[in-house]
Write a protein that binds this DNA or RNA. Structure first.
Lengths: 361, 361
DNA sequence: CTGAAAGCGCTTACAG
DNA sequence: CTGAAAGCGCTTACAG
């Protein structure tokens, strides 16, 4: 794999010497001429192999520096950009190119799975990294069938069993988030999830439930909400939660972007975080670190996930025997300033206080 | 080879004859060597064009899909991601691939300009879009010399005269920002700039100065600060400005990221925006729209800039005669909620009030 | 900066 | 079939 020191590029003459024949003979073999004895041809082919000879055009036009195709849903999330950064970093180390495309920007005529797979082969791609839900399992299979190495990163839904994928430990992350809030003394903890169909959100929800149940706290239905991974979801959910008779003292949001929506709505309603409400996000993007207050968040190793995806492609290319088709990287809770112990029960915050007392100040 | 006729494959020698020079000279031009007189180079380039000469590797290579190389400093800014989105969109429309690399992630051995240019040719790239200050003019010239279409997007500093570039009307944007604040009634307006060496920041500063001078207001030295295009710069600058005896009632920040730092520090010191301080950013990234309060900002057409860069490459590829090598797209002020009329003079906000009255609340 | 001359790597034509 | 020799197209080193 090292491109570093080449003693000297093997020439025709060197191959000839290795094979014990003249240069014209090697030339004939390379150019597929028929006037060469089978035995001689075999010796020359062996020598070509040993010396790693490349024809001038092979040397010059390097038709394909290895390239991975990276397909994203969009780049309009800090999440996607972080994964991309990891992909770029590992690709640079492996001296591979990254050909980037974004499904939302696809030109008019979307290619069918078979055509797309064929084009990937024609262009000499080494593989494809998929960070989008735009491919269904039929399409993924079209790539597999043509033996194009493929890796799906953090799929909303699990890919077919034989497709490689990279994800994060969502269940453990959800459990850690809820456990942190429980340890601070919270008992009324809400969960604002991603789309109900998304496996990763379900896993986070079940981690949250596991933590509550371990403390003997039953999960209240009205505390469990769902929606897209967007700030608007956080805004809406926050409004619903504040309107409850018994609003939560803490919220676990299934993504930082949702949490940012919660934060914005909290500020609008003058609910102070963390004094009146604790908030935990998920993803650990730089947005979480830079928000005011900085957000406690379950950090996913997004760059590592991007790096792992590239490594997975490389290992498939090398024909390595890979025992597990799924890699799950650990999440970890990063405690910042959006979580604190709940206020004493007497001063419990309610929606009515927010509406009346604080708004106009 | 028959004498006098022009057979199918034009050779170096044929080109040399056509140009009235020796074969070594043609060889030098093709390989981008510098030891060729400009006038000679022009003659040879013309002869290459007329004869339709192809290098051996060009003759052998299979025509593949057109691809642009896009080189960014990093993707850790909303600015860069927006430009990239524009590049991706226009490239998709033109059915071109985008090969993405990030200079900060370059693998161990950075390529020299000549090698890098050669590799671009070897890989069959159609051109290169540069969104980084990592290339000096010598390097840019190395690409120009080899006839690789190249476009520099919003250069911190202007590229050499013959390099194509895409930018935004920074001076007009700076003027619009200051004029907006003046129209609201502000008279003490500070400017927090980018790096002093950056042309774009200088242009914004001079636009700001022009607006003040048009109102007969002299620019106060202590109100003009500079630093990197990062939130930390905004934080530092905000601290200095608040420490002045006569702090400004409005701040024009040379980028949204700087403004976000100002916003964070303002919140920390309980300076309310816009009630006590008006704030204008620059760039118009989604960060400006999503901050609390949403930021008034001079919007750059970042996606359009990315799109224009791709179009510039396409036009160079098509050999179009391009009259202007610089395209400057219009900026426009987007007024949101971070700007308002200053408080009446009697209640003028001072640093001391912030320190004493509000902090502990 | 230019180009005659030498050189390089490969191919071709042909004698054996 | 094989390979010495001539040839081709391009590059390099260097004298002027």
């Amino acid at each position: 794999m090292t491109i570093g020191t080449k003693p000297s590029k093997p020439t025709l003459a060197a191959v000839a010497q290795e094979a014990g024949v003249s240069t014209p003979t090697v030339s004939k073999v390379i150019n597929g001429r028929e006037d060469v004895a089978d035995e001689t041809r075999a010796r020359v082919l062996a020598a070509l192999e040993r010396t790693g000879y490349k024809t001038p055009s092979q040397r010059r036009s390097v038709p394909s520096r290895r390239a991975v195709e990276a397909v994203f849903d969009s780049l309009n999330s800090a999440y996607a950009v972080e994964v991309l950064n990891g992909v770029l970093e590992q690709a640079a180390i492996a001296d591979m190119e990254v050909v980037l495309s974004v499904t939302s920007r696809q030109s008019g005529s979307p290619l069918g799975p078979e055509e797309r797979a064929q084009r990937l082969i024609d262009e000499g791609r080494s593989g494809m990294i998929v960070v989008t839900s735009a491919f269904n399992s039929g399409q993924l299979n079209a790539f597999q069938r043509r033996r194009i190495p493929i890796v799906v990163v953090d799929p909303l839904n699990p890919p077919p069993g034989d497709v490689f994928s990279v994800g994060a430990s969502n269940w453990a992350g959800g459990k850690a988030a809820a456990a942190h809030l429980l340890a601070l003394g919270h008992r009324r903890i809400a969960y604002i999830g991603g789309p109900e169909s998304a496996e990763c959100s379900q896993a986070r929800l079940h981690g949250y439930m596991a933590a509550l149940m371990a403390e003997g706290i039953s999960v209240q239905e009205e505390y469990v909400l769902a929606g897209p991974f967007r700030p608007s979801n956080g805004v809406q959910a926050m409004k619903s939660l504040l309107a409850l008779d018994d609003p939560p003292t803490a919220i676990f949001a299934a993504s930082d972007s949702i949490a940012l929506g919660v934060l914005a709505e909290a500020r609008r309603q003058n609910v102070r975080i963390p004094e009146e409400l604790s908030l935990v996000g998920f993803d650990g993007t730089h947005q979480a670190a830079e928000s005011v207050p900085p957000l406690t968040s379950v950090s996913q190793p997004l760059q590592d996930m991007g790096r792992s995806a590239v490594n997975f492609i490389l290992r498939q290319m090398n024909g390595e025997d890979i025992d597990s088709r799924r890699v799950e990287l650990a999440t970890h809770l990063v405690v910042r300033e959006s979580t604190a112990a709940p206020r004493p029960a007497a001063h419990r915050f309610t929606a009515k206080e927010a509406g009346a007392g604080n708004r106009g100040t």
